[in-house]
């Protein structure tokens, strides 16, 4: 969607908010300048950024830190998920051996 459609979805949001987030690299719409297009994930991210700033009262720097950590958590979760899928493809004996190792390492 365009920036106008985005702004109409979020009552309190202004173009200035969006431009600032894009300028700081927190938001990466496709296209450039006047013709940004926002995908579903960008729209959801805008809502989160707005909530962090307005509802939760984080200042600009804190928002940047928080969203950076959120990105890292999702990246790690994605990697863990891939690892889990790779494990699930292993023969049962291998998976049981890994599960046993995990239990052993988890205890120590």
């Amino acid at each position: 969607m365009t920036i106008d459609e985005l702004l109409s979805l979020h009552g309190r949001l202004t173009a200035m908010h969006v431009e600032r987030w894009v300028a700081r690299g927190l938001l990466r719409p496709a296209g450039s300048g006047d013709a940004w297009t926002f995908e579903q994930i960008d729209v959801a991210r805008v809502r989160l950024l707005a909530e962090l700033a307005d509802d939760l009262g984080f200042d600009d720097e804190a928002v940047e830190t928080v969203i950076g950590l959120v990105d890292q958590v999702h990246t790690l979760r994605g990697q863990l998920d891939l690892l889990a899928r790779a494990l699930a493809e292993q023969p049962p004996a291998t998976r049981e051996a890994i599960a046993a190792t995990l239990r052993r390492l988890g205890r120590s």
Partner: peptide, 23 residues
């Protein structure tokens, strides 16, 4: 919530360390 998107198929967009290559 954002997490629904970030854990979906388009989630790599904001993943730390770049796009597809990081995988």
């Amino acid at each position: 919530f954002y997490r629904d998107q970030a854990s979906g198929p388009g989630g790599f967009k904001y993943s730390r360390g770049g796009g597809h290559e990081s995988f």
